[in-house]
Design a protein around this nucleic acid. Structure first.
Length: 219
DNA sequence: GACCAGGCACATC
DNA sequence: GATGTGCATGGT
């Protein structure tokens, strides 16, 4: 008898939590900082993002109003360390434009919108794709949405649970269908998968050391 | 010097 | 609809 997906996912989660401990995500102090981080970390090492965020803080630009007022060129210079700085400056501008046009610049108002309504609105903002939208929903607004990223895909692929026709939403639906809709669980689960990815699921695998190396055989 | 990192939009076929 | 490409810094 095969182990049902919900039991597998729960066991993986427990193994990861036991091995790594709580990850305390998202590493940001305010809602706005989390959102900015979610955009800046697109295809980018988190260490570089922290440098960019430090620059923004030091310049007083880490508020919606300040970011709306600053020129795109100046914003781009501040976020240089995070890479793709011209594109990302544009994307940050698009987000604050959206925030002010739809919610009068109030993240509190935005937070009151049901995630099923908010998600398509975020996706319509140029520069916000599925992962960025879901990171914002989960980590900035505490909505029970599962975030899928490159590490999640790599993990599933390595453990033969991902075929080439599984796209972002298939994978997300799989986790959300088989796990309790719990913000704290989704928060920790994604963070743990990233931690696993950083430590073990590198492009050149180090699976021999992986705490889940038994997974393929046991399930 | 090559490779990698918590994506996304856009051009082209 | 699928595939390829540009965007860019900083660490290993």
């Amino acid at each position: 008898m095969k182990t049902p997906p919900s039991a597998q996912l729960t066991r993986i989660y427990k193994s990861l939590l036991q091995h790594f401990g709580p990850q305390h995500w998202w590493p940001g102090e305010t809602r706005f900082e989390i959102i900015v981080g979610a955009i800046l970390t697109q295809n980018t090492n988190w260490e570089n993002v922290t440098k960019a965020i430090r620059n923004l803080k030091g310049s007083g630009l880490l508020t919606p109003l300040a970011m709306r007022k600053v020129s795109r060129a100046r914003l781009a210079q501040k976020i240089r360390p995070s890479g793709y700085y011209n594109i990302k400056a544009r994307r940050l501008k698009h987000f604050v434009g959206f925030l002010f046009s739809q919610y009068q610049g109030s993240l509190r108002k935005m937070a009151g919108v049901p995630w099923e309504t908010l998600r398509p609105k975020l996706l319509a903002v140029n520069g916000i794709g599925p992962e960025t939208a879901d990171s914002i929903l989960l980590y900035a607004f505490g909505k029970p949405v599962f975030v899928v990223d490159a590490y999640t895909k790599r993990f599933l692929s390595r453990h033969k649970r991902l075929s080439s026709e599984n796209d972002y939403h298939d994978i997300q639906a799989f986790f959300m269908r088989h796990l309790k809709r719990d913000t704290r669980l989704f928060n920790e689960y994604h963070a743990l998968l990233v931690r696993l990815g950083k430590d073990y699921c590198r492009p050149v695998p180090r699976c021999i050391l992986c705490p889940l190396r038994e997974l393929s055989r046991r399930t």
